[in-house]
């Protein structure tokens, strides 16, 4: 009962952000939407853990938060540099 409104709202948020991830139109819109999805999934997870009565499992949400950042930065680094390791600029035709 305490958690119901928040869970419903977060699920709606997830669905709306997914729509943006589908629509695009650019890769950045998708990456932004997925970043938001990661944040919302993290919140949803924290709330669900409280709902199931195991608040000490919030570590999971922490891992999510960290991975969300890693994923976003990896996508962007790849998109800017064309590689994850060393800087080697690629021509725009290939990336589009």
């Amino acid at each position: 009962m305490i958690y119901a409104p928040a869970i419903v709202a977060l699920l709606v948020t997830l669905a709306l952000a997914l729509v943006r991830a589908f629509l695009g139109p650019t890769l950045f819109d998708r990456a932004l939407a997925v970043n938001a999805i990661g944040t919302v999934a993290m919140l949803l997870l924290a709330v669900l853990e409280f709902l199931t009565g195991r608040p000490e499992y919030t570590d999971l949400a922490l891992v999510y938060g960290l991975l969300n950042v890693v994923g976003t930065i990896a996508v962007l680094k790849f998109f800017r540099l064309g590689d994850l390791g060393h800087a080697s600029p690629v021509d725009d035709e290939e990336m589009r």
Binding site: I2, Y3, P5, A6, I7, V8, A9, L10, V12, T13, L16, V40, L43, V47
Partner: peptide, 9 residues
């Protein structure tokens, strides 16, 4: 919680 959810939406 509900307000937070609302702002997320």
């Amino acid at each position: 919680l509900a307000l937070g959810g609302l702002f997320c939406v």
